[in-house]
Amino acid sequence: MKYKVFVSSTINDLMQERVAAEKAIISAQCEPRMSDKTFTAVDANSFDACMTELEESDIYILILGERYGWEYEGKSVTEWEYLKAIELKKPRIVFNLAYIRNREIKQNEFINRVGDFDAGRFWKTAKDVFEPAR
């Protein structure tokens, strides 16, 4: 059985990181689930399609970059996905991109929630675009 691995991040600003994540997932003999690459057309809005793909996945990966991203009902889609992964008790792997310098304020706030010592997640700090693939 191949594990389905859901990749959550903003897309346009993290294209190289997403390619690196996809390659790492495939090399681990797992199946990447990525909205910009693997989702098919469905009769649902984008938010619901993402939530369904996440529900059907086995593992959740979050890549924290510069942008907070598109907001839906007061939170970025990436944050909604993170909260859903918690609710579903999915194994969560987080990569914080240390080489990103000019983060949006809302993204810094989200990062602080994700990395909170008591309630958050330990993360891997990536020093370059390909580190998550190693």
Rank of each mutant, 00 (worst) to 15 (best):
W80R: 04
I86M: 05
I26G: 03
W70P: 07
G69E: 08
S46P: 04
M1R: 14
R121Y: 15
N102I: 00
E56R: 08
I61V: 14
M15R: 15
T125R: 15
S57Y: 03
M15A: 11
I26N: 03
T38D: 14
A85Q: 06
L97T: 00
Y72T: 05
A41S: 15
C50R: 03
N102M: 01
R92H: 05
E71A: 07
K2S: 11
Y99E: 06
V129R: 15
W70A: 14
E22L: 08
S27T: 06
R18W: 04
V42N: 08
D58Q: 05
T125L: 08
L88M: 13
A49W: 02
D43V: 09
I105A: 12
E131T: 13
E17V: 14
Q16L: 09
E31K: 11
G69K: 00
G65D: 08
P32L: 07
V5Q: 11
Y72L: 06
I59Q: 06
E53A: 14
L97C: 11
V129P: 15
A133I: 03
Y3H: 12
T40N: 10
L14D: 04
E109S: 06
K84M: 01
A98M: 10
Y60H: 12
I105V: 14
C50I: 06
T38Y: 11
F122D: 02
V129Q: 13
A41K: 11
K37P: 01
E104R: 03
R113L: 10
I11D: 12
S8L: 04
I100K: 15
G65V: 05
M1D: 15
K23H: 10
Y68K: 00
S8D: 07
E55N: 09
Q16A: 13
Q16W: 03
F39R: 02
E66N: 15
M1N: 15
D13W: 00
A126E: 04
N102H: 02
G120T: 11
A44Y: 08
M15S: 10
I59G: 07
E87K: 14
Y99K: 09
F122N: 04
K84Y: 02
R33T: 12
D58K: 06
N12H: 12
I100R: 13
I11A: 09
T52I: 13
L62D: 03
Y82N: 05
F47E: 05
Y72K: 09
E79S: 09
E81G: 04
K23M: 06
E71K: 04
D58L: 07
I11W: 09
E109A: 05
E131H: 14
S46Y: 01
E55V: 07
I111S: 05
E87A: 11
W123G: 05
L64C: 09
A85W: 04
D43M: 08
R18F: 04
Y68R: 02
T125A: 14
K89F: 01
W80S: 02
A126T: 10
T125Q: 13
V114G: 09
L54E: 02
L64E: 02
R101I: 04
I105T: 14
V5C: 12
F39K: 01
W80A: 03
T38K: 04
Q16C: 08
A44R: 14
L97H: 03
K90I: 05
V5A: 10
V7G: 03
R121K: 13
I25E: 08
T125S: 13
C50P: 12
E73R: 10
A28H: 12
F39A: 02
